[in-house]
Structures are given as C-alpha cells and as structure tokens.
C-alpha cells in the first residue's frame, strides 16, 4: 500500500510533466505568433533560419506575414533555391509562381548546366524554351575557347547567333583592345569604345571614368597609365 506522501509526490511529478509538455507544445506552436507585429524580430528570425540552411527551421515563421509577404515561404524559397543551384536541379523552377519566373529559372539552370558539363547533349534534356539559350552558352564558350567566331554559326537562331558573335568580339576587345575596331562591336558599345580609345591615346584617365561599361572601364584604368 502506497503512503499518502508517495501519492502526493507522484501527483506533483505528473503535474510538472504535463505542464512542461503543454508549455513546450504551446511555445513551439506559437513561435510565429511571437513574431507577429514585430517586424524587426521577424526579420532577424528569417535571417537566422535562412542562414541555417535547414528547411525545418522555417516552421518557426509559420503565419508571419510582413508587408504582405509570407515569411515562412520566403525562408523555404531561399533555402530551396540555394540547394537547387548547388545541384543544378531544375525541378525547383516548377515551384515558382509565374510562368515567366519558371521560364527564366529553367533557362538559367540550363545555361549553368551546360557550362558545367561542357557537353552540348546537356541541352537536349532541358525544356524547349531553354534549349536555344543553352546551345548559345555552349557555342559561345567554344568560340571563345577556340578563338573561332565561326563556331557561333552553329546556333540556329539568328538573334542568339548574333549575341554569340557580339560576345566574342567584346571579349576579344577586352583581351586586345587595339586589335578590335569599334565598328566591330555592337552598336550600343561603339560610343564607349571610341571614348576608351581616345582615353588611351591621350592618356587621360578621366576618359575611363566616363565609360558606362564596367569591364571596359576597369581595363581602361589599367591600360591608360602604362
């Protein structure tokens, strides 16, 4: 037969356990509500969860909406996006909302995949809309790698083929600006090109600063003083 004292002790222990379990459950399920109405704390929680790279940590942001934005979704998307790019997993793109967002994501992913694989066959497995940009990325890299602009002609789409040739000429200009006439560059870059060459000729470093093309400006700064 148990003594009354033992019963009391048992009752207290059970009560403490129930209280702890309840409070734990309560706080766990209400983490998000703690952050409601406190955007600073919500932002910090979001920052912390994203940095953790653990998708389960996004649960603490459930129900938190700041300026119309669902923070749990933002958290999940940041982590999933990072993981998708690490694996070049285009399946992630289908989780995005708008059709244009999905297209852009798949195209970007395809370009990244072919640049990594250096294999044109990679482009066969990408979505139809991403195929031409994927092939353009491949042949652009090949043209640059082999110093052969004619490789751009392997791109069937004439606009993308022109983009490949423009990119080739631009890179050739950055490598040896004196060997490339400004008229060879795309129309939009000819003004900068002329300014670049005047700056080099006159050794006026101010001319470099007026260049809008950033790599061209950087190269100008390096060359004009030599």
């Amino acid at each position: 037969m148990e003594s009354p004292v033992s019963k009391k002790i048992l009752f207290v222990v059970v009560l403490v356990i129930i209280t702890v379990v309840y409070l734990g459950f309560f706080f766990r399920s209400n983490r998000g509500t703690d952050l409601l109405g406190n955007p600073d704390k919500a932002n910090q929680a979001l920052d912390s969860a994203v940095k953790s790279d653990r998708i389960e940590n996004c649960a603490q942001l459930r129900g938190v909406v700041v300026s119309g934005t669902d923070y749990e979704a933002v958290c999940r998307q940041n982590i999933l996006e990072k993981q998708a790019w690490e694996k070049l997993d285009s399946g992630y793109c289908d989780t995005l909302g708008s059709a244009s967002a999905v297209d852009y994501c798949k195209t970007s992913m395809a370009i990244a995949a072919v640049q990594k694989s250096q294999d044109l066959a990679t482009c066969d497995s990408v979505s139809e809309g991403a195929r031409i940009p994927c092939q353009t990325a491949y042949w652009s890299a090949k043209a640059l790698g082999n110093s052969d602009i004619k490789l751009c002609d392997n791109i069937s789409d004439k606009d993308f083929a022109l983009s490949c040739r423009n990119g080739f000429t631009y890179q050739r200009f950055l490598a040896a600006p004196r060997d490339v006439a400004c008229s060879e560059l795309p129309v939009a870059m000819r003004g900068d090109c002329a300014t670049f060459k005047r700056a080099l000729q006159s050794k006026q470093i101010q001319g470099c600063y007026s260049l809008s093309d950033v790599p061209m400006r950087s190269l100008c700064l390096k060359l004009v003083g030599k």
Partner: peptide
C-alpha cells in the same frame, strides 16, 4: 532585403518586371 541580415525577401528578376520585357537580341 531584410535590413537586419540581408535575406532576399523577393527578387523581381524572375518575372522580368511584369512581362513587358521580352528580351531579344540587343534588347536591354
């Protein structure tokens, strides 16, 4: 970005600022 940690709350690149931008050669 969040001011506290620089987490991207959203990026507009994905939907190209509303579909009015349909890139083609030399379009910017």
């Amino acid at each position: 970005y969040t001011p506290s940690g620089g987490t991207a709350v959203w990026r507009s690149l994905d939907d190209t600022l509303g579909g009015e931008f349909n890139p083609c050669n030399a379009q910017a």
